[in-house]
Amino acid sequence: MAIQELEMEGRKPAAVFITSPTYHGICSNLSEISQLCHSHGVPLIVDEAHGAHLGFHPRMPNSALQQGADLAVQSTHKVLCSLTQSSMLHMSGNLVDREKICGCLQTLQSTSPSYLLLASLDAARHQLSENPEGIFEEALQMALDAKNTIRGLPGISVLDSQSLPNFPVIDPLRLTIGFGQLSLSGYEADEIMYDDHEIICELVGTSSITFAFNLGTCKEHVERLVSGVKHVRVSSTRGTVAKAEPSVSAPFADFKTSLIPRDAFFASKRRVSIANCVGEVCGELICPYPPGIPVMIPGETITERALDYLLDARRKGAMISGTSDPRLSSILVCKK
């Protein structure tokens, strides 16, 4: 494991960083990870952006702090009711120097914070404190009912712990629906649901779409969602939508860097057409969203496989961010 390898080299990691839950609600076993980290005297930092609600109901996974994390960063606005851009940093234990954290925050934060955001954070905290165990009961039941109904539709799949045996815990307020059996991409299904039912998903991907239930969800929303999924299925079986082409697999395991990102970022650039850039050194960050993971970064050698993936994602409706040409007809590369 990485910690032991570093210790064999006479080094010690500053911290272990984990993202849990993911955008789809998949949770890591933070209890075991924190025990392992602490046995080596290493703090555990958790990006818990989508988990500010965890731990407030018996049917929900425990929060990162409840599982032993030393630092947890939460985007309180994502599922709870604070204003957009408001978030919280939580600390526990003695492995992390609190004074150093406070000093870093004073260095990085604005001297003119938004008191609207701060007030909304306090309002969200107060809302939870009034009924911490029952406030999510209705949302949880609606999410369960929706999953059971949609799971029973032929050709439709629902992400659950059975499909992810290595990650048995999933946020019950996240619903990820797959349309692969209908030969539809997530982008195509999302377009049908928006155009015909005005349903806006939380996250769309190449083969699925994800929805988030929260304290503002009502039965009318769930009924419309179920109707929209049924409509997608009927539309596909009637042949009213084009069948998706096979997806190009993500190339993240196969890459080579020619420059470190900093040198590539500051290097002189030239623009090259998409047809002539294979083998060049990428000069910009190219990131299809969703899923929001960069396919190429400055300093990385451009490969045909990476280009195929990017063009496939763009063709299916993904937004290409980071690049100066969002149409992806050209790419900035480093001058040799």
Rank of each mutant, 00 (worst) to 15 (best):
Ile199Phe: 00
Ser208Leu: 11
Asp195Leu: 06
Thr217Val: 02
Thr210Gln: 03
Cys201Met: 09
Glu198Asn: 09
Ala189Gly: 15
Ile192Trp: 10
Ala212Gly: 03
Met193Asn: 08
Thr206Tyr: 07
Ile209Leu: 15
Met193Trp: 03
Asp195Asn: 08
Leu203Arg: 12
Ile209Ser: 15
Tyr194Ser: 00
Lys219Ile: 03
Tyr194Gly: 00
Lys219Tyr: 02
Asp190Phe: 00
Ser207Gly: 12
Phe213Pro: 11
Met193Glu: 09
Lys219Asp: 10
Ile200Trp: 04
Ile199Trp: 01
Gly216Asn: 10
Glu191Trp: 14
Asp190Met: 03
Glu202Met: 08
Phe213Val: 06
Ala189Gln: 09
Thr217Pro: 01
Ala212Tyr: 13
Phe211Gly: 00
Glu188Cys: 14
Ser208Met: 13
Val204Cys: 09
Ile200Met: 09
Asn214Phe: 00
Ile200Gln: 10
Asp196Met: 04
Gly216Pro: 00
Lys219Ala: 07
Ala189Arg: 06
Leu215Asn: 02
Lys219His: 05
Thr210Glu: 01
Ala189Phe: 05
Phe213Tyr: 14
Cys201Tyr: 06
Leu215Thr: 02
Met193Arg: 05
Asp195Val: 04
Asp195Lys: 10
Glu188Leu: 13
Phe213Gly: 07
Cys218Ile: 04
Ile192Val: 15
Ser208Ile: 12
Asn214Ile: 00
Cys218Arg: 06
Ala189Lys: 05
Ala212Lys: 10
Ile200Leu: 08
Gly205Lys: 13
Glu188Gln: 15
Lys219Ser: 07
Met193Leu: 14
Asp195Cys: 05
Glu198Met: 05
Ser208Val: 14
Met193His: 05
Lys219Gln: 10
Phe213His: 11
Glu198Phe: 02
Ile199Pro: 03
Phe213Ala: 07
Ile209Glu: 06
Ser208Gly: 08
Glu191Lys: 14
Ile192Asn: 05
Asp190Cys: 11
Gly205Tyr: 11
Leu203His: 14
Val204Ala: 08
Gly216Ser: 06
Gly205Ile: 07
Asp196Ser: 09
Thr206His: 11
Ile199Ala: 01
Ser207Thr: 13
Thr217His: 01
His197Val: 02
Asp196Glu: 12
Gly205His: 12
Ile199Asn: 02
Ile192Lys: 02
Thr217Arg: 01
Glu191Gly: 09
Asp196Gln: 10
Cys218Val: 08
Leu215Tyr: 00
Asp195Glu: 07
Ala212Ser: 13
Gly216Tyr: 02
Phe211His: 13
Ile200Val: 12
Thr210Phe: 04
Glu188Ala: 15
Glu191Leu: 14
Asp196Phe: 06
Thr206Phe: 06
Thr217Ala: 00
Val204Asp: 06
Asn214His: 10
Cys218Phe: 00
Thr217Cys: 04
Ile199Asp: 02
Asp196Arg: 11
Gly216Phe: 03
Leu203Asn: 11
Asp190Pro: 05
His197Asp: 07
Ala189Ser: 12
Glu202Gly: 11
Met193Ala: 12
Gly216Arg: 08
Glu202Cys: 06
Thr206Ala: 15
Ile192Leu: 12
Met193Phe: 05
Thr206Gln: 15
Phe211Asp: 00
Ala189Met: 07
Tyr194Val: 00
Cys201Gly: 08
Ser207Lys: 11
Ala212Ile: 10
Tyr194Phe: 12
Glu198Ala: 07
Val204Leu: 04
Ile200Gly: 03
Thr217Met: 01
Leu203Gln: 13
Glu198Leu: 05
Ile209Phe: 13
Thr210Ile: 04
Ile199Ser: 01
Cys218Ala: 02
Thr217Lys: 01
His197Cys: 08
Ser207Arg: 12
Ile209Met: 15
Asn214Arg: 03
Phe213Thr: 07
Ile200Phe: 06
Ser208Asp: 15
